[in-house]
Simulated assay, not measured.
Amino acid sequence: MNEATVTSLRQQAEPLAALSSAHLTPTTRQRLISNDLSVNAYPTAHGGFVYVGSPRYDIPTEADLAAVFEAAELAGIVWLKFDADSAVIDGLPVFDTPGDAL
């Protein structure tokens, strides 16, 4: 692979943060699983990816997710990966313990 290709690909990278699905209420987690969030989301077998944008392209109608979006935008995060086994982030609300449903 030539260096120009690698450089070009690297320029397309967008920051992603993996965080616990415990930062979402059970209702929002279910909406993520059902691909029914108010913003662009891509469910996976263990959670899902949610697009924040840079700058944030929309404000979620789900209050818990809106709080995460605000923090993500301040941190320069473009994508969120929610997973029960990912880290609990200090300062964000937790609605149950990591490892529970989703």
Score class of each variant (00 low, 15 high):
Val68Met: 00
Val6Pro: 00
Asn35Pro: 04
Thr27Glu: 05
Gly53Cys: 10
Val52Tyr: 03
Arg29Glu: 02
Asp100His: 04
Gln30Arg: 13
Leu74Phe: 02
Val78Trp: 11
Thr97Arg: 09
Glu62Ser: 05
Thr44His: 10
Ser86Met: 11
Ala71Phe: 01
Val39Gly: 06
Ala75Leu: 09
Tyr42Gly: 01
Ile77Ser: 00
Phe49Pro: 03
Asp100Gln: 09
Pro55Cys: 09
Thr27Asn: 02
His23Asn: 04
Pro26Asn: 02
Pro26Trp: 00
Asn40Lys: 12
Ala87Ile: 06
Thr5Arg: 09
Glu14Val: 13
Asp36Pro: 01
Thr5Phe: 07
Pro43Leu: 14
Ala75Pro: 01
Ser38Asp: 06
Leu37Gln: 06
Pro15Gln: 10
Ala4Asp: 10
Ser38Lys: 06
Asn2Gln: 07
Gly48Cys: 14
Thr25Tyr: 02
Asp90Ile: 06
Leu32Asn: 09
Asp96Met: 01
Gly48Asn: 12
Asn2Ser: 11
Pro15Thr: 13
Trp79Leu: 14
Val50Glu: 08
Val68His: 02
Asp100Cys: 03
Ala84Val: 04
Trp79Phe: 15
Gly76Ser: 08
Ala41Trp: 13
Glu73Tyr: 01
Thr5Trp: 02
Phe82Lys: 10
Asp85Asn: 14
Ala22Pro: 00
Lys81Val: 02
Asp83Pro: 07
Thr28Ser: 13
Ala41Asn: 15
Pro55Ser: 11
Ile59Pro: 01
Ala41Asp: 14
Gln12His: 10
Ala4Ile: 10
Arg31Cys: 04
Ser21Glu: 07
Thr97Gln: 11
Ile89Thr: 05
Leu92Tyr: 00
Leu74Arg: 12
Leu24Lys: 02
Val94Ser: 12
Gly76Gln: 09
Asp64Pro: 01
Val78Arg: 12
Lys81Met: 13
Ala4Asn: 08
Ala22Ser: 15
Ile77Gln: 03
Ala84Phe: 07
Val52Glu: 05
Ser38Phe: 06
Thr27Ile: 03
Ala71Lys: 00
Pro26Gly: 02
Asp83Met: 09
Leu19Glu: 06
Thr44Arg: 13
Leu16Gly: 00
Gly53Ser: 09
Arg56Ala: 05
Ala101Cys: 00
Leu80Asp: 01
Tyr57Ser: 15
Ala4Pro: 00
Arg29Pro: 04
Pro43His: 15
Ala13Ile: 08
Ala72Trp: 03
Ser8Ala: 14
Leu80Ile: 01
Gly99Thr: 04
Thr61His: 10
Met1Tyr: 07
Glu3Gly: 00
Val94Arg: 10
Ser86Cys: 12
Asp96Phe: 04
Ser21Lys: 04
Asn35Trp: 08
Ser21Gly: 11
Thr44Gly: 15
Ala4Val: 08
Ala101Trp: 03
Leu65Glu: 06
Ser8His: 06
Trp79Pro: 04
Tyr42Ile: 13
Asp100Glu: 12
Asp100Arg: 05
Ile33Met: 12
Asn35Tyr: 06
Glu70Val: 02
Val52Met: 05
Val94Gly: 01
Ala87Lys: 12
Pro98Leu: 05
Asp90Lys: 11
Lys81Cys: 13
Ser54Thr: 14
His46Gly: 08
Ala66Glu: 03
Ala84Trp: 06
Leu16Ser: 04
Ser38Thr: 15
Trp79Met: 12
Leu65Ser: 08
Pro43Asp: 13
Leu24Asn: 05
Ser86Arg: 08
Ala84Cys: 07
Gln12Asp: 05
Phe82Leu: 10
Leu9Met: 10
Gln12Phe: 05
Ser34Met: 12
Leu19Met: 15
Gly53Pro: 08
